[in-house]
């Protein structure tokens, strides 16, 4: 088994005086889809957003413990959060394309990080990203139209294309399909499975079926603690902890 790319040790996260995450130890393996599941308010999103330090935006949010990506403590003072986020992309619950053209949406990350040296290279990279996101055939002839003219599922794939354009190591997804219809969800799920070859994906989802379908590893959070973490098949067939069993079978726990 490959070495974990993300390692969390004794991670505690606080919102002011309230503690949201208690002593979480978690190893996320590269080129695998890791699903974080659990009831609302269990801290799974908080933990996800700690991985690319999006929690920094919340002034009262405080994190303790060790959270390393590829061996580097991402909360060390020497880490530049901009560089971190360039390597750890994120896709949000609601598709949030920028109010710009489809092309500009994908090109934005490349432009700010100056990842391309010429206009043709930029165009190639945008095309490559859109192809990787399985969107190219649908938008190739209308790259200059606004990103929000696309359907919800296409918008979400555009956001994924935008995230992979800068070739991050890790892609975090915060309930990426919760606003999509089943067909669009299936397309995004297929995409996630394809992306696994090149990226490490951590996904928060409320759909147990989705977690079971697309992830190889599943972590169950409950009341801010990591209750169970293991192979998805094991977690969904023979969970070790009764809380996990109660949650995934829809019982009053």
């Amino acid at each position: 088994m490959a070495d974990p790319i993300i390692t969390a040790r004794n991670v505690n996260i606080f919102y002011g005086a309230a503690q949201a995450i208690f002593d979480v130890d978690l190893d996320i393996l590269p080129n695998k889809v890791t699903a974080l599941i659990g009831p609302s308010g269990c801290g799974k999103s908080t933990f996800l957003r700690a991985i690319n330090r999006m929690n920094d935006l919340i002034p009262i949010c405080r994190i303790e413990g060790d959270l390393k990506i590829a061996g580097q403590d991402i909360y060390s003072p020497s880490v530049d959060v901009v560089a971190l986020r360039a390597q750890v992309g994120m896709v949000f619950q609601k598709p949030n394309p920028f109010p710009k053209s489809i092309f500009e949406n994908v090109a934005y990350g490349l432009k700010i990080h100056k990842l391309t040296s010429s206009k043709t290279e930029l165009q190639d990279r945008v095309e490559w990203s859109l192809k990787s996101a399985g969107l190219w055939s649908e938008v190739a002839d209308r790259l200059n139209q606004p990103g929000n003219s696309l359907s919800g599922g296409q918008q979400q794939r555009l956001c994924i294309a935008r995230a992979i354009a800068v070739e991050p190591k890790v892609i975090l997804m915060d309930e990426p399909c919760s606003a999509l219809d089943p067909i669009a969800t299936a397309v995004v799920e297929e995409l996630i499975d394809n992306l696994r070859k090149d990226y490490t994906i951590v996904i928060v989802t409320h759909s147990m079926q989705q977690a079971a379908r697309i992830s190889q590893r599943t972590a169950f959070f409950h009341l801010g603690t990591l209750v169970e973490f293991g192979d998805t098949k094991t977690v969904f067939t023979t969970p070790a902890d009764e809380r996990t069993q109660n949650y995934i079978t829809g019982r009053i726990g």
């Binding site: 147990m208 079926q209 067939t237 969970p239 995934i248 079978t249 829809g250």
Partner: peptide
């Protein structure tokens, strides 16, 4: 109807 999981599935 219910997509049973784990114990329920068995």
């Amino acid at each position: 109807r219910r997509q049973p999981m784990a114990l329920d599935l068995r």
